[in-house]
Design a protein around this nucleic acid. Structure first.
Lengths: 341, 341
DNA sequence: AATCATTTTGGGAGCGCTCCCAAAATCTTA
DNA sequence: TAAGATTTTGGGAGCGCTCCCAAAATGATT
């Protein structure tokens, strides 16, 4: 049984191809009785229009691409990404877009994939999860290809590119200030990698908080992690000799690793050492001690990114759009706030 | 700047549309000098063929769909899914397919998405992650639509459908036998939901192991979890009164939750109570005590599923293909094997 | 009932490719 | 060098839609 075409439906309903097309696309200029008849035939036959033909004729594919560049390994360690993907997928469902997923692991992958994402005919727009230095190239190639593009996470060079981000500086400033207000004086940080804007921004907020509270920035209280549990674990080990009494970790998963290291070193949480994480994903509440953390609206973030992209597709690329979302400090046990009665 | 077409390249290279098409598709019947000239023009102009036009003309989209039905909530709790997705994406990259991701949360989602996946023109084939009872309907609709389909995880009704799975019965039989061999006599299980084939099969292996080792099956030693950490946690709490000396959990994440509950109840692991998980994802080695677990080749599983699907696409749907992959018991600390010196 | 305005309908052209067939160019062989 | 075999090339048709324009049908107005 060959696939049905518009023409088949038209014949069966006794109308023309154009009329069936109008019915399908919800044009108002169809007599009610005719619409009903056509709809019936469509129902009975289970006809669905061919996506490729539609795309070719209308120059609109109703497909968005999600590119996750080079972050692949982290992608599967940090629950942040699945949550982001969830928000994006939900928005795509909502707005009737199909989501194409591109996991770019290697340079070869990038070369293979680039033609597919840069040319109309497959995608109407592209979402790139980024903030890493290594992602700059693909972003610029995309910008030059005039493909509607939204970057999730501020890119290093952001002139002319639309992106969505959270206020990382403010968020970590608040988190660290909270620790200081609780009386902690040797506040350490496990920062994200310096080749990422998230890493840089959260570190900046940390420094700013210390500074504004009259505390000195001590390099031996700053370690760098890679957003993995084991990265947090070893960062914490390197921090231990400096005897911190609090740690602000740039992600929950690193905080979890760090707490494991602290526990192994015989420290009591939060009595001897306090912890604040970042993300507020479910894992934050799963360890024996509930993690105080910065809640970022990951799912909504993804959802909003899609809305931004659709805006670009429908209303043109200029001016570039910028969206900064808010965060909230969620106080639980690991920061020791409950110690002060 | 409008997008370039085949015709443009043909004109610039002084050949016909057909010849350019041949060059792009690697046809051998092109004079070498001509091929070189055309390739040069393509290079210079940065031309890429339009995917929609190609799909329409060749009836091949080079796109595969991955459908994750109803499991959405678990999807973002259990790292199994990201890993599976990784394998699938890698295979797609390898074989030059684009991956379209469909997260089906609600019945409405299913209705919205079904037309897109069932009709040629968008997808060449579909992969459904399944094993849940609620997924039967979409699988059968897909089977009836004659769309090439591979189910990842044995579906409830498997006649005529191609699927890939691991030998869950054997795997859990081995895991439980291992615990018994170590001298545990009150072996409990935290099974997966009874509305999933994984849940059922792993439970069956558990029962079989007890039976073959002459132990009685005690209903109070069987609890059901939902593949989440907190599900494992509460399942363990319900198991505690029956005083198990070992627990086989149907997933690592549930084992982690269960161990948390056991620890909170003052039990020492593995001295008082041993644990074996299932999956061997990175989390298995991240807790304070290393988890003994059944390793299943999740990434390769996804990869293989794609290869299966491509086989169906290229060589026809019949007979249905079946692939069962092997697992391996990874012995670490939580089972107490190291206690026997 | 005739005229004009408005709504509804049909069909042609075209989106940018692939595929097939026949024509042109090139190579063999006697 | 001519005939035939083979390789290379060009162009038409068609994939299944959308979009536009003109024709047909309907409605409003005198």
């Amino acid at each position: 049984m060959a696939e049905l075409t518009l023409e088949d439906i038209a014949r069966q309903a006794g109308v023309s191809r154009s009329t069936v097309s109008r019915v399908i696309n919800g044009s108002p200029n169809v007599r009610e009785s005719v619409r009903k008849r056509v709809l019936e035939v469509i129902q009975q036959t289970g006809y669905h229009p061919n996506a490729a033909a539609r795309t070719l004729a209308s120059q609109r594919s109703w497909t968005l691409g999600l590119v996750l560049p080079h972050s692949v390994s982290v992608f599967f360690t940090d629950p942040y990404f699945p949550h982001l993907t969830k928000g994006i997928a939900q928005a795509c469902n909502q707005y009737n877009y199909t989501l194409a997923l591109f996991l770019v692991g290697t340079k070869e992958d990038e070369e293979k994939i680039f033609p597919r994402i840069s040319r109309k005919g497959l995608l109407d727009g592209v979402l790139v999860q980024s903030g890493h230095h290594g992602d700059q190239q693909i972003i610029w190639r995309l910008v030059n290809s005039k493909m509607p593009l939204v970057v999730a996470g501020r890119p290093f060079r952001s002139d002319g590119v639309s992106y969505i981000d959270i206020d990382n500086v403010k968020a970590s400033y608040n988190a660290v200030s909270h620790l200081i207000r609780l009386g902690r004086r040797r506040v350490a940080t496990i920062a994200g990698p310096a080749h990422s804007t998230v890493g840089l921004d959260r570190r900046e907020g940390y420094v700013k908080a210390l500074y504004e509270h009259g505390l000195e920035v001590n390099e031996s209280l700053i370690a760098e992690g890679d957003f993995t549990e084991s990265g947090g674990y070893s960062a914490m080990q390197s921090l231990l000799p400096a005897k911190p009494d609090a740690v602000f970790a740039a992600s929950d998963i690193m905080a979890i690793g760090a707490m494991r290291a602290a526990r192994e070193a015989g420290l009591r949480i939060p009595h001897d050492i306090a912890f604040v994480g970042f993300d507020d994903l479910p894992i934050a509440t799963l360890s024996d001690i509930q993690l105080t953390t910065v809640r970022q609206p990951v799912v909504q973030f993804g959802y909003k990114a899609v809305e931004l992209l659709i805006d670009l597709i429908e209303n043109g690329l200029n001016p570039p759009r910028r969206v900064i979302m808010d965060t909230e400090l969620i106080v639980r046990d690991s920061c020791g706030a409950s110690l002060q009665s």
